[in-house]
Design a binder for these strands. Structure first.
Lengths: 187, 187
DNA sequence: CTGATTTATTGATTTTCGTCAATAGTATTT
DNA sequence: AAATACTATTGACGAAAATCAATAAATCAG
């Protein structure tokens, strides 16, 4: 069974037939820097698995971009809210650099659930992880000062700091660009 | 099939045998006001469905209680982070009043998934709803002033305001008790 | 019912961080 | 390489809400 990609690492219970079935339904896609994978107003069609590159998810409010997450290699991403609810997304997902990913459409995923019930479990686990990340983020943000939030990001996801702009990081950490700039000045 | 309880309302795809199997694995439990259903430091064992009463989920930080959610009749609740990860919970769940609930243990739930694969889908949907609520909460919190957050709670979940104390509501809305008190003074 | 303890209100002060504004630095285009 | 347009830094100021502190009201225990 495929080894090159870590995509099944977290789903050891999947049978070979499920894996094969799953892989045959994946589509490999490449993106240049700044391309939109998912767009607000449209129902999110795909679940992505990043092989190379990076992306950010963001939405717009008061003419401003609010970054809600960054996706790096080896991670799944979609506009989960829309992907789940089948309602129009308020999120955009754009690549921060040239990227390569696998993707599977929502329809295909539902078919997979019918043909290979184990895959529903794998999806459930992706959802669980998504949930946990969101919950940790929420708690993490609640008690930390702007400075502490930045230091934690540096500690746990330094690659994000390398790949994203000050503006993206600031909105992700829920502070103004100026505040972030001042924090960086006196690390 | 049972009609009294709305527990299956959102899962119309469940077969009668799944429903019967599920119901036979539910345990009915009653609580007085202030009882702990789940406790920090312990792995969350149960998923609850509230028939009557209300509860709040909270964790402790800096000697303070931070309320993360309220559960009313007809809603599911657990310390989801722990229930998912099987790691010790940092959340507590306590009843706000005399309550009645169904509950199912994590082990039983996993067995159900084996015997009635459809139930895994129902669980997935509970998880999805949990996720969506959390995400909406996060965005909701980000752009609203203290006053607006309170007004929205009044609009969408007025029962919470009736049943919870000012302290609980304030921490849930991420503001000080004093601020909430002042907001209430001049509605 | 009464005293004690917890919960809520109101006022004064402080702090953190956002906004506005000017400047500097980096990229991108021609 | 010069011109233009983003992106980042730094300073001055102000606003929202936190903290500290003192009462007041409500709840609970005996």
């Amino acid at each position: 069974m495929e080894k090159i990609l870590g995509i099944f690492d977290k789903f050891p219970f999947l049978s070979d037939s499920s894996k094969t079935g799953f892989l045959s339904n994946l589509e490999e896609v490449k993106f240049e820097k700044g391309e939109l994978l998912e767009e607000e107003g449209k129902v999110s069609q795909y679940l992505y698995y990043f092989l190379e590159g990076a992306a950010r998810s963001y939405y717009r409010r008061n003419n401003r971009d609010i970054t809600v997450s960054f996706t790096l290699e080896g991670e799944f991403v979609t506009a989960m809210h829309s992907f789940i609810s089948r309602k129009p997304s308020y999120e955009n997902i754009e690549t921060l650099e040239k990227s390569k990913a696998y993707r599977i459409s929502h329809d295909t995923l539902l078919n997979m659930f019918e043909n290979f019930p184990e895959t529903e479990r794998a999806y459930r686990m992706i959802l669980e992880e998504y949930y946990i990340v969101l919950e940790e983020q929420q708690i993490f943000a609640k008690f930390k000062s702007a400075r502490e939030r930045y230091l934690e990001l540096m500690e746990y996801r330094p690659k994000v700091i390398q790949k994203a702009s000050v503006g993206h990081i600031a909105s992700y950490l829920d502070m103004s660009i100026e505040t972030l700039s001042r924090i960086r000045a006196k690390i």
